[in-house]
Design a protein around this nucleic acid. Structure first.
Lengths: 150, 150
DNA sequence: TTTAGTGCAAAGGATTTGCAGCTAG
DNA sequence: CTAGCTGCAAATCCTTTGCACTAAA
């Protein structure tokens, strides 16, 4: 649950090697792409990387790399809606998501707001909430207003 | 967001007809299965129903029916993990989920615990949280303990 | 009778996997 | 050198769709 997210290739290389893994240009570019995009599905990462480099990483490499980087604690992901997951830098995972089930709009709010709730879960169940993965569904202001009229 | 969940075929039939839809044995059995199972993926519902009736509803019918019943407000679903969604009676959706990212265990807690947080989102963003869909990820007591040792 | 609902099979999208060749260390 | 990594294509898994047939109302 520690947040050690290197954006630079150097420290990524170090993290990988310390686990017997290898640094490759593909991994560097994929990390870069996620950092640039902020939030991105595997498909979006692939497209972004495809555009910027010649021997474009294959889609499977993107999937495998995202998984590896998540295990390293560099990346994190959320399920914003029914579709593919969204990846982001673990260091940038300082917020929660509010997803409108009506129009799909996504808002963010500070992670801190979950603290009281997380605290309570810890006390009652010993469950340690990872607020980086928290997504709340509901109606955004606009859709709630529309619904109220009908 | 209203919770009117008939477990009995009678009221289901009424709800369906009032919208120009039809009551069928398949729909009755699928609702029954979800009620019995508590939480169930489409696949699990299909299997359960398959066992208990002769002209077993096809998987596509299960999917279509779950969708229909959800539109009616009878059912509701959550994404507990990466896999298929989990359906349950809307009336039984009075709790939130705590999913362990390590071992996959699922615990429940009262929906009420989210109220303060929901209130805050409403004030700050006008966002109306639907606490029935809330799932928090993290480590269950056991896995948290194991992690602490390492 | 009318038309929603069903089964089946085929299509679709997202993700994983097997394997041979490539390359970081 | 010697594994770990990659690309490619095939395989899986989950879900949706098209269509002819069945059955509620």
């Amino acid at each position: 649950m520690q947040v050690t997210a290197p954006r630079d290739p150097e420290s990524l290389a170090r993290m990988l090697r310390s686990r017997g893994l290898r640094m490759t240009p593909q991994r560097g570019r994929i990390l870069e792409a996620v950092a640039d995009l902020g939030h991105a599905t595997p498909e979006a990462v692939a497209e972004s990387v495809r555009a910027s480099c010649d021997p474009a990483p294959s889609l499977s490499t993107v999937y495998r790399t995202l998984e590896t980087l998540e295990e390293l604690g560099v990346l994190s992901h959320t399920h914003l809606d029914h579709g593919p997951p969204s990846y982001h830098l673990a260091a940038h995972a300082d917020h929660i998501h509010l997803v409108c089930v009506e129009c799909g709009a996504v808002q963010e709010d500070s992670m801190d707001v979950v603290e009281p709730l997380a605290q309570r879960m810890r006390e009652r169940h010993g469950f340690v909430v990872d607020p980086r993965h928290l997504t709340m569904h509901g109606l955004c202001a606009r859709c709630a207003a529309e619904e109220a009229q009908a």
